[in-house]
Design a protein around this nucleic acid. Structure first.
Lengths: 353, 353
DNA sequence: TTGTAGGCGTTATCAG
DNA sequence: CTGATAACGCCTACAA
């Protein structure tokens, strides 16, 4: 209380003056980039404590260094929806790992349409990780590339030289389908993820596929159709158990058109379908076989193990983080292809007669 | 390709020169903070497009404005664990809403111990939202306060003048307990959230309570003990279904010590306890009553509705966001107390004879 | 080991 | 409505 209320926060120059050293010396004390005599260091630290100086202003440091230490993760849709999906959370986990000590943290943002004040254009970040790649995300991509910042796209065709992290969705889906085919099923229905930002829950037509913007959906569908070219498909409006229930009812209610197996493009959807089946009194796998995709831990299957393809979700995030780190280090980013592993569970079985 | 490869990105000064205007004019064109003649604006925009100028550098703008537009959210523990909890995700959702147009996004970070290079000290953010407030988080709090940035603490005693968002955990827990008491139960066991960063799964002793650092846990326990002063309690190591199963087994396996009702401090724990009960052949609520806390949507209860206290999770986040917005606007932040609503479900019933 | 000087790219202010 | 100028707070050659 010896002095008047200070009009503004102290700067490193104030600290230096107080300590009787040059500002550069004080700066070095905080950054640790060079050796400083212990006594000098003490004096600077004492002066800082005295003035209530909490360290260099990160904003100024960012400008000077040209780095903010923040990596942006752009998600499609509401944050909550994104985090409802276990695959996404696992990926985020891997991402933080891959970014390790490089980054101060992860800036979560939604990819809004071409808004004027869009966060994507104004956030002080060093790099971007885009997840998924629908039409809307593609617009975001342009902005980001325009800013000249490193970008990595997870599961989406970014076009050009943009490094991507991809999955063998076509082959892995075909694997699952083949397993079901081998069990004798011929009357199979498909449940897909959303085809585009409309996220309409509806029968999948050739026209809709042609206009689809979500690559994951298209690729997994392609894999399934390699084995079951004519299987009818319904697109869900998201990867949620509840959605699976709704679509499941659409597929299973009418005994006349009921398939003997359902292939879902995500485990959550598969669980929903199973739940719908149970509601209708169908037993899984005796009356109906159901397979999913993702290989997440799912609750509420009561002893059943889902037949699915296990994707390396954490690895996906980590790979993205590593590429970002590389690019920030000046090296070129590389596209990485990851593969899924088929897992036979107890939700698929022989065709009922 | 008319020019050589540019050595550095163009700046607003380059654009201004190219357009034949002053840098300040060009700046205004991009910020929109003042009127500019349409013709001039066009010229500037054209020059920008020409040079491949993607807009003002956010880092420089941050320094100049003294704002980065980023709000940090500090979570305890691994991000994945945090997002596994539906209450947290709901809260984050509300938070983004409350921050609305004010913020470019949410910077996720963990509260690491007093590391030198801690993100908390170096991230260019405008404000902090701390979630929970264990011992570790309290350390973070000091750093943040030292930086002189606005802080809001959700569910935790920050001490001092720090604005908080709180829940009536004591009263709400007592409500749940009273409901169970009214049903006739006297032999009740409690399952608590973690007491501290150790997150030990173990019987709760007076000593452990005295040393507890997680206020939520202590408060909810206090409410429960108001009704059942002598009820034994076990602390879980987290709010997870699996944890509930483990603790449930500890409580229910031995018929001699088996309670007639279990009060859990979270819905996920309650679901786990129910699952453990089912494993042991106990019917809920005929043989065992189970109540939770939170009021989240939970899957896998097979037709049962959990008796619980519904907390305003989204509202909590929104309130925090609003307070941050207020404080950034120069007004003082206010502490807000939110209340839960009891919801009787079908997982509690009369005492079995 | 310490000090000096210049600039990172913007934007607020104020005069024209 | 436009233009000149001065910070914002820090970092890092470079020189001493």
């Amino acid at each position: 209380m010896s002095s008047q209320e200070t009009p503004r926060r102290p700067t490193i120059a104030d600290v230096a003056r107080e300590a009787g050293v040059a500002t550069s010396t004080a700066s070095v004390v905080f950054s640790g980039k060079a050796n400083v005599a212990a006594a000098t260091r003490e004096r600077v630290l004492a002066a800082a404590a005295d003035l209530g100086y909490a360290g260099p202003d990160p904003r100024a440091a960012s400008l000077r260094r040209g780095r903010s230490g923040i990596v942006a993760v752009v998600l499609e849709g509401h944050l909550r929806a994104a985090f409802l999906d276990p695959v996404t959370t696992a990926m985020m986990d891997g991402l933080t790992d891959g970014l390790a000590d490089l980054s101060a943290g992860i800036l979560l943002m939604r990819d809004e349409p071409g808004e004027e004040g869009a966060a994507i254009t104004h956030a002080p970040v060093d790099a971007f990780v885009l997840i998924g790649c629908s039409g809307r995300t593609k617009a975001s991509l342009e902005v980001v590339v325009g800013r000249g910042l490193p970008v990595v796209v997870i599961e989406g065709d970014a076009g050009g030289e943009i490094p991507r992290i991809t999955l063998d969705n076509v082959a892995a889906s075909a694997d699952v389908a083949r397993h079901v085919h081998d069990l004798g099923h011929r009357d199979v229905a498909l449940v897909t993820l959303p085809l585009d930002s409309e996220r309409e829950r509806a029968a999948v037509t050739p026209e809709r596929i042609a206009n689809a913007t979500v690559d994951v959906t298209v690729h997994r569908l392609e894999g399934m159709r390699q084995v079951f070219p004519d299987a009818p498909a319904i697109s869900a409006s998201g990867s949620l158990i509840d959605e699976g229930v709704l679509v499941g009812r659409m597929l299973l209610t009418d005994p006349a058109t009921r398939p003997t197996a359902v292939l879902a493009q995500s485990d959550l959807l598969a669980v929903g379908v199973i739940r719908a089946a149970e509601e209708l009194g169908l037993r899984v796998p005796e009356d109906l076989s159901v397979a999913g995709f993702d290989g997440i831990e799912v609750d509420g299957l009561g002893g059943l193990t889902l037949t699915t393809s296990v994707q390396p979700a954490v690895e996906k995030g980590r790979a993205a983080g590593e590429q970002v780190a590389r690019m920030l280090g000046g090296e070129p980013g590389m596209t990485q292809h990851l593969t899924c592993v088929f897992r036979a569970g107890t939700t698929t079985g022989p065709v009922p007669r």
